[in-house]
Computed example of a mutant assay.
Amino acid sequence: MSRLRALAALAALTLTGALLAVIPSTAASAAACATPWQSAAVYTSGMQVSHNGRNYQAKWWTQSEAPPGTTGVWQDLGACGGSTPPPPDGTCNHPNWIAGTWYPAGSIVRYTNGQYYIAEHDNPGYDPIISTWYWNPYTCSGTPPTSSPPPTNPGGFVVSEAQFRQMFPNRNSFYTYSGLINALNAYPAFARTGSATVQRQEAAAFLANVYHETGGLVHIVEQNTANYPHYCDSGQPYGCPAGQAAYYGRGPIQLSWNFNYNAAGAALGLPLLTNPWLVQNDAAVAWKTAIWYWMTQHGPGTMTAHNAMVTGAGFGQTIRSINGSIECNGGNPAQVQSRVTRYQQFVGILGVPAGANLYC
């Protein structure tokens, strides 16, 4: 009997061991994902994050080093969320996209059109249907949904109207996208020279400078009215037929001085010397004067802003061509930084790198 009891006990232990061996593998599943890692956040010892489908724990203070990192600060806790079965009918259950929210790569959101998108690159809440470099369509099966190709942008411009709206969310209604498109035929080489990347870089550079000059396309005319009488160079043979104080800054580049109105008018076939108010009353004219300056004038610089971008001289040279005598060479680094920051934002929206030589 004792031998039978021993065999029974051994069998029970063996069965229990087998069950124990089976139970963990059945119950084992990836842990829930911790809060997604954010480059701007500060993490201290013991704090946990998720990144690219894995959980990590900080060993000491860290910031900006994405897990798994190279310094050893992140302890890999294993895969997360991987064993969660997909919804039964193939539908998704992900949070709604919120503009301005930081989304690390791998984030999945539901957009306002009811479709889902996955972040291909970390981004500060760019619009999924505009910033296609940052977002891709997503289904729960991981298969991108079929969709018709986006419509060709009017005039062949590399910036779509949706991207334009994203760049200038608070713009004055005077500055229409259609006005910009109508102005493109004045200089066909604008944002159409070089590779697709160069074309987008030039468009971003132009619009970044425009943003800076007008406070985000808010101001149509120069705000300091005390300057108005100063823009008449009476030494010019044609003088100031529209009046002493008529040639103040207007439009996206804030065109000013009677000699600039005269030159722009001659180039564009418009009576700007005698009727400078056209620039503040006609959106297409306003955009044309800005593109005229960009394409043909080098100001205090040594090259046009257009040539700076298509030859690889860099964004910094566009600043020099527009206001380099005041801002460059340490003249006003805050203003230079403002332009550079905006340019970096705009190339991000267009999905291209910023390139070299950003400063002047």
Results as ranks from 00 to 15, higher is better:
P169R: 12
V159K: 13
G179S: 12
P169I: 12
G179V: 08
V159A: 06
F174P: 04
L180F: 15
F157Q: 14
I181D: 00
N170E: 14
Q163M: 11
N182L: 10
A162Q: 07
F157P: 08
Q163E: 12
F164G: 06
P169W: 13
A162T: 00
G155C: 04
Y175L: 12
F157M: 08
R171E: 03
N185S: 15
G155D: 02
V158Y: 10
F174H: 13
I181N: 08
M167I: 14
N182G: 15
Q166Y: 07
R171K: 15
V158N: 08
V158E: 06
F174V: 05
R165K: 15
A186R: 13
S160Q: 05
G156V: 08
N170K: 13
N172I: 10
L180E: 11
P169G: 11
L184A: 10
T176D: 05
N185F: 00
R165W: 03
N182P: 00
N172F: 11
A162D: 06
V158H: 12
F164N: 04
G156H: 05
F168L: 09
V158A: 11
E161M: 04
F157N: 12
L184E: 05
Y177S: 02
S173P: 02
Y177K: 06
T176P: 06
S173F: 03
A186P: 01
A186V: 05
F157C: 05
S178P: 00
G179D: 03
V158Q: 10
N170M: 12
F157D: 09
N182A: 15
Y177C: 06
F164V: 01
N170H: 14
Q163K: 12
S173M: 08
R165V: 00
V159F: 10
A183Q: 09
Q166F: 12
G179M: 07
P169L: 11
A162M: 01
G155K: 10
N182V: 09
M167T: 12
S178D: 15
M167D: 11
Y187D: 03
S160V: 02
F174T: 06
V159D: 06
L184V: 09
A186W: 03
T176R: 13
F157A: 10
F157I: 12
R165D: 09
Y175H: 05
F164K: 06
S173A: 14
G156I: 07
Y177V: 03
F157H: 12
I181A: 12
A162H: 00
V158S: 09
Q163A: 15
R171V: 02
G179K: 09
L184T: 07
N185L: 01
F157S: 12
E161V: 03
R165T: 01
S160D: 01
N172C: 09
T176F: 05
N182Q: 13
A186D: 08
F174S: 10
L184Y: 09
Y177P: 02
L180T: 10
A183S: 15
P169F: 14
Y175C: 04
Y175E: 05
S173W: 11
G179C: 04
F164L: 05
G179Q: 08
N172K: 14
F174W: 09
G155V: 04
L180P: 00
